[in-house]
Each structure stands twice: as C-alpha cells, then as structure tokens.
Design a protein around this nucleic acid. Structure first.
Length: 282
DNA sequence: AGCCTATGCGAAC
DNA sequence: TTCGCCTAGGCTG
C-alpha cells in the first residue's frame, strides 16, 4: 500500500480527524512509549507528507515521524462508540474525543516511528527529492539528477533522493505509459520526456490520493473497453505491467516481463518499451 | 493452518 | 549483500 499517495492521503485523514484537538498518545506495544509520553495530552497541530514520510506536528516544534516501510499500516477510525483494546503490535495509538464518538489511529509494522525536532524533520526533507504530490515541488531538481546519471531510469525513479513518493507500482506504470525502456540511462532521456513523465505522475498520484488505489490504465484499455475481466489484486487498481509477468500487454499483446533491479521486481513490456537502439540490435 | 509474497528502506554483516 | 520490521492478503493443502 504505501507509495506516496498513501502517505498524503493519511496526512489528510489525520489532519481532518485530529488537528486542533487534544490527543492522547500511547504505545501499547511499548517501543514508542517514552516518546509518546512527550506528546500525550497535547494538541495535534496537523499532519503532512513528503514523499513516503509522514510528519504529525505537536506544539514546541515536535514531530512524530512515521515511515510505513513495506507493510506498515496506520489505520484511522472515526466516530467509534468506544476505543477497543489494541489488536496485535500497536506501536503508536492516537485517541481523541470527536464530535460524534471517539477517534483513534493505530500504527503497526512501520519501519520508522520516532519523535523529531524541527531540525530533524528538515533533515529528512533535505534528503528527499521533489514530491509530485506537493505544491512546492520543483521537478527541475529531479531532472538535474537524472540527466547527469548513467544509472537506469527504472532505478532513478525509485531513488527517493531523486524523486520522492514514487514506488514500484508508479515506477513501472509511468515508464510504460511513456514507452520508456527501464534500463535506459537517465542521461539518455530528453528533457521533454522527463517533463511529460513528471506531469503524468502528478495526475496519477493525485488520483491515487483521492481513491486510495493506483489506477494507471487509460480509458480505451480498461477491462470494460477491451472485454477482459477486471483485475483482482490487493491494491485494487487497474495497471498495465505491475505484477503482470507472462500476461499479454493490454496494448500490443506481448508477454509482460520481469527482472530484478536493485533487489526489487521490475515489470515492463519488451515491445512497447523497447528503445530504438535495442530495436536495431535485435 | 501454514506458506509465500509485497507498493521500502535503514542497519547490520 | 542480507536482514528486520512482524502486517495481511492470497494461495496451497
């Protein structure tokens, strides 16, 4: 679940639920107990995301920094009649009295949950590239990294210091939508190509924030348009290549391929995403 | 019921 | 390069 859209959606949800309210903070599991005690009973100011990082701000420039990692979850419940006993390993629980019942949020399985000062928060932001979901993002910063790098664009898109918030699904899908071979060096891309990919990510990821899923398939290639069954998958969205190894490409019918790149599965269509040069070599 | 895998990433080896 | 995080859906049996 956690690519950038998930964190921005969560930031919005936490702000809507807890901002301006006195919040009880605790760590039923215990690992965040000392820090939770420092913000317990304070008014949560708001929450924001930068890439895959989430910051919940408390008075005195204190920030609860959360990174969900691969399988972390932060589930927000509103309007509950009561606050149930925690289930499983709840690292952080936030509770507030709402207008209609109780609100509570449970954090599980996160790779990071820590209390930071403003300087600490700024340091996390400083290591992050521009985030397509932020108004203040500067795509030129990412372009400067990409154009100077001989590393494959498929890897650069996943490098959070180049670009923040893109994960394995958006990476694969945006490359497909722009017919870019994932193994092409960043330096071989043209500026206009990057600009188009960035603008596409902004649209796709904003849609993801609204829906809570990743959908990247254009209307003409949707199941209804093509007469194929909808995808049944844990993220629920319609995609072109992600986890479609061996299945026919929705556009050209070639078998989708997968390979490991920097320890992650990379999916692509060998025909739609073949570079001119590799075409000539074959 | 048990096994496998996963939208991530920092620490340990 | 491998491990830990220790969740949860999907698949096998």
């Amino acid at each position: 679940m956690p690519e950038g859209h998930t964190l921005h959606r969560l930031a919005d949800e936490l702000t809507a639920t807890f901002a301006g309210r006195v919040v009880r903070a605790g760590s039923p599991q215990g690992r965040f107990a000392e820090s939770a005690a420092l913000v317990d009973g304070q008014v949560l100011r708001g929450a924001e995301a930068w890439g895959k990082h989430l910051f919940a701000e408390f008075p005195g420039e204190r920030f609860v920094h959360v990174h969900l990692g691969l399988y972390g979850r932060f589930d927000v419940h509103t309007g509950a009649a009561d606050v149930p006993a925690p289930v499983g390993q709840v690292r952080l629980r936030l509770v507030a009295a709402g207008d209609a019942g109780w609100s509570y949020a449970d954090l599980r399985g996160a790779t990071t949950c820590e209390l930071l000062t403003l300087a600490g928060r700024d340091a996390v932001v400083a290591r992050s590239g521009p985030d397509p979901l932020r108004e203040d993002a500067d795509p030129a910063r990412a372009w400067e990294r990409i154009r100077r790098s001989r590393a494959p664009i498929g890897g650069l898109l996943m490098d959070q210091s180049v670009l923040a918030g893109v994960g394995n699904v958006y990476r694969a899908e945006v490359l497909f939508r722009h017919r870019v071979d994932p193994m092409r060096p960043g330096s071989s891309l043209r500026r206009g190509q990057w600009q188009a990919m960035w603008e596409d990510l902004v649209v796709l990821m904003q849609e993801g924030v609204l829906t809570g899923r990743i959908d990247t398939v254009r209307p003409e290639h949707l199941p209804e348009a093509m007469g194929r069954p909808p995808r049944r998958d844990d993220h629920g969205g319609e995609v072109y290549v992600y986890r479609r190894t061996g299945q026919p490409c929705h556009v050209c019918g070639a078998r989708i391929r997968t390979t490991e790149l920097q320890g992650r599965n990379l999916f692509w269509c060998p025909r739609c995403q073949r570079t001119f040069r590799s075409r000539a070599l074959q």
